[in-house]
């Protein structure tokens, strides 16, 4: 499913600030695996997830998702395999767009975005139903700008967006436990091939 083989990531190589974040890291995950990565600050947890997500290219090694070598694939093209929940609750949503528009963006992850309507009527009903599962009352605020929601509400929405189109792999960087709001457990009802989570 996911295969990291011998990947390296070095920040500021050949300078006094050189930092070897990932050193010859290999990892194989199978369908349905749920992995939690725990480590101290600066251990490289986020770096590993960013490597998988394609925020930048790894310096050496290869990454394969679902049999496809994505090592050289830019971030936006890898998106079709990945659902992502960011550490910063503000990062995963577009603040100036409303709830249904954010969901519609996520529903088209990895698909071509042409001149068809951005949201179709049938989608709205589906979104309303799924938002109701979060039990946050968001289903009645579909045209509210996401920027007006709280961090926790936005994070719940991000999780729904990440799973709206079943991802091959869910990458979730969690905030440290004392700062984490009550997680919206209901989201896990939708089965996911495999998920990786760091904390």
């Amino acid at each position: 499913m996911l295969e990291l083989s011998n990947i390296y990531k070095v920040f500021n190589p050949n300078t006094v600030n050189e930092k070897i974040a990932l050193k010859n890291l290999s990892l194989t995950l199978n369908d349905g695996d749920f992995v939690t990565v725990i480590g101290g600050n600066g251990a490289g947890k986020s770096t590993m997830l960013n490597a998988i997500a394609g925020v930048w290219r790894v310096d050496a090694g290869s990454i394969t998702i679902d049999g496809v070598d994505v090592t050289a694939m830019p971030e936006h093209r890898r998106a079709k395999f990945l659902g992502r929940v960011f550490q910063d609750p503000m990062m995963g949503t577009a603040a100036g767009m409303n709830i249904e528009e954010n969901l519609a963006l996520a529903a088209r992850r990895g698909k071509s975005r042409g001149l068809g309507w951005g949201i179709r009527k049938a989608e709205r009903a589906e979104y309303r139903e799924k938002l109701a599962m979060l039990e946050l009352g968001l289903e009645n605020r579909m045209t509210t700008k996401v920027g007006l929601l709280s961090g926790g509400q936005r994070q719940a929405l991000t999780l729904l967006m990440a799973t709206l189109q079943r991802p091959k792999l869910l990458l979730w960087t969690s905030t440290p436990p004392p700062l984490t709001p009550r997680p919206p457990r209901k989201c896990f009802l939708s089965p996911i091939g495999s998920s990786t989570r760091t904390s």
């Binding site: 936006h76 079709k80 990062m91 995963g92 100036g96 767009m97 088209r108 975005r113």
Partner: peptide, 13 residues
């Protein structure tokens, strides 16, 4: 324009 990081995560170039 709103959030380029999130946009890339949603597959937008």
């Amino acid at each position: 324009g709103n959030n380029p990081n999130m946009s890339r995560a949603q597959g937008i170039n």
